[in-house]
Design a protein around this nucleic acid. Structure first.
Lengths: 248, 248
DNA sequence: AAGTGGTCTAGACCACTGC
DNA sequence: CAGTGGTCTAGACCACTTT
C-alpha cells in the first residue's frame, strides 16, 4: 500500500496534501484552500504540478475554483460521489454512521458458462462466490452478491468478511485498473427481500459492477463482478460531476 | 454556439481533432491514434498541451493509452460516465433506433416553495413546466417531467417539443456549467405507468437531473430540473454485458 | 536505438476579482 | 494595484516497449 511518503507522481502529493486536510476536518466545506503559489512554496513543486493536482480534485468534486478569487472546499457533501465509492463501509462511515456486515456464505463453486465469460476465466473452473448483507446503523442497506476470479485474489475465502469488506480486501491485494457499472431498477426476489428486510412491492436499485486488475502482461483480466442490491426507500445514488463542454 | 474553429483553449482543439475523427468513423475502436509528437507537429501546439487533451479523452473513456506503445481508440464505448448522455434523442439514434416525442403539456405555473429553492428562483414567481413522453421505435422509453427557470430560457414554451427535445433546446440557448444526478428506484404512480405503458408491479428507474448555466456575474443559477422515468424492463444505465443470473 | 507515454520545471501571458 | 486561477511553451528526464 503506497503511503503519503511514497515517491509517486508529485501531483498526487498535492492531491494527498489537500485530501488529508479535508478528511481530517481541518478544512471544511466553503473554506479557502491554499492558493497555487502558496502550495508551490509549501510543497516545493512547480505551479503546473500544483495546478494539475487541484484540477483533478475539482473534476472529482472535492474543490471549486473561481478564477481571480480562489479555491474552495466544495459544499456538495459526502453523499456525493456517484459510482466512485467502491467500499460501502467508507461511504457509511463518511455519513457518520456505523457499518456492520453479516456473511451469508463464502465458498468456491464451479462457474457457469456465461459467468466464465464475464469473469474472464476458463469455463469449467471454479470461482469464489460470496453473499454479504451490509448494515447502516443496524438497518440493511446493501446485499452484495459477488464473484471473484481466484487468479486475482487466491486467498479470498480466508478473509473475515464481517471485519473487512470484499471491496476493501480486493483493493488491497490487487490495484484497480478499470471499473464498469450498470444500474437497473428491479423487483427483489424473495431471498433478496428477506436479507434486506424489505416490505413487499418495494423495488431495489441494482448496481452491477465489474472490476479489472492489471494482469500478467498486456491484457487486463476481470477480477470480480458484483451485484449490489439496495432497498429503494433507503438509498439513492447521487452523482454530481462537472461537465466539460465542447463534445457532441 | 462556439464551433471547432473557435479560439478557445488549445487542448480543446486537440480533443476536437481526435473526437471529430472518431465520430466521422475515420478512426475505429482499436485503431492507433497519432502519437503525442505527431500531434505536436500536426497541430502546432506543445507536447504538454497535446498530453492534456489526450489525457482528458482517456479519462472520459474515449482513448486507452499504453506507455511505450501508443494511444488507441477505446473498445468499449460507455465504460466511463453513463450519465453523460444528456439528450435522449441522441442516445436512441446512436443505437440505430428512431426517436419520437409526444408532448403532454407545456405551460407556465406558479412555483411551489421547495421547487423554488431547487430551481434558484424567488418563491411566488412562475416557472415553465413540461411533460413529455419519449419513444424508441414507438415504445415509451422515458417520461420527462421538467421544470425550467425562465431566466435561463425565456422562450421555452414556444419550442416544438415533438421536433426538438428540451435538452437539445436548453443546450442551445444556454451553455451548461454543471450537472447533478440522482438515481433512484421507484414504483411508478398511475399517471407515470400509463404514459410509459407499463404493466403493474414493475418499477421505474428515476433519474433526477439538475443543470446549471452560468449566470449574471459570480454565482451560478439553476437552469432546469428534470425527473426522468424509465421502465425498468426497457432500460438500464450503463454498458450492458452478458451476465444473466437466475435471480432478479 | 528509437519511439512511446508519464511526468516535471521555470518561466510566461491572459482575464478576472478584490482592494 | 497585487493576487487569483487558466492556459501555454520548450525544454527535460524517466521507464517502458519495439525493432
Amino acid at each position: 500500500m503506497p503511503k503519503s511518503g511514497s515517491p509517486g507522481p508529485l501531483y498526487k502529493k498535492v492531491k494527498s496534501f489537500v485530501l488529508d486536510r479535508i478528511h481530517s476536518g481541518e478544512w471544511r466545506p466553503g473554506d479557502r484552500v491554499l492558493s497555487e503559489n502558496e502550495l508551490v512554496r509549501e510543497l516545493g513543486v512547480s505551479r503546473m504540478t500544483v495546478n494539475r493536482g487541484l484540477r483533478e480534485l475539482t473534476d472529482e468534486g472535492y474543490l471549486e475554483r473561481i478564477a481571480g478569487v480562489g479555491t474552495f472546499i466544495a459544499q456538495s457533501r459526502s453523499q456525493g460521489h456517484p459510482l466512485e465509492v467502491l467500499n460501502i463501509a467508507d461511504e457509511i462511515h463518511s455519513r457518520g454512521n456505523t457499518h456492520r456486515a453479516r456473511l451469508i456464505y463464502a465458498l468456491e463453486e464451479p462457474v457457469s458458462p456465461d459467468r466464465a465469460v464475464a469473469l474472464g476465466v476458463v469455463p469449467g473452473t471454479s470461482v469464489f462466490h460470496s453473499l454479504i448483507v451490509h448494515y447502516e446503523n443496524d438497518r440493511p442497506i446493501q446485499l452484495e452478491d459477488r464473484y471473484v476470479n481466484p487468479a486475482a485474489a487466491p486467498d479470498y475465502l480466508s478473509v473475515d468478511f464481517e471485519r473487512i469488506t470484499p471491496s476493501e480486501y480486493l483493493l488491497e491485494v490487487a490495484p484497480l485498473k478499470k471499473v464498469e457499472h450498470m444500474v437497473r431498477a428491479v423487483m427483489p426476489t424473495d431471498e433478496v427481500r428477506r436479507h434486506l428486510e424489505m416490505p413487499r412491492d418495494e423495488p431495489c436499485l441494482l448496481l452491477v459492477r465489474r472490476t479489472w486488475s492489471p494482469a500478467s502482461t498486456t491484457k487486463a483480466a476481470v477480477a470480480s463482478t458484483a451485484r449490489l442490491y439496495y432497498p429503494a426507500t433507503r438509498f439513492q445514488l447521487g452523482a454530481p460531476f462537472s461537465v466539460r463542454t465542447g463534445d457532441s
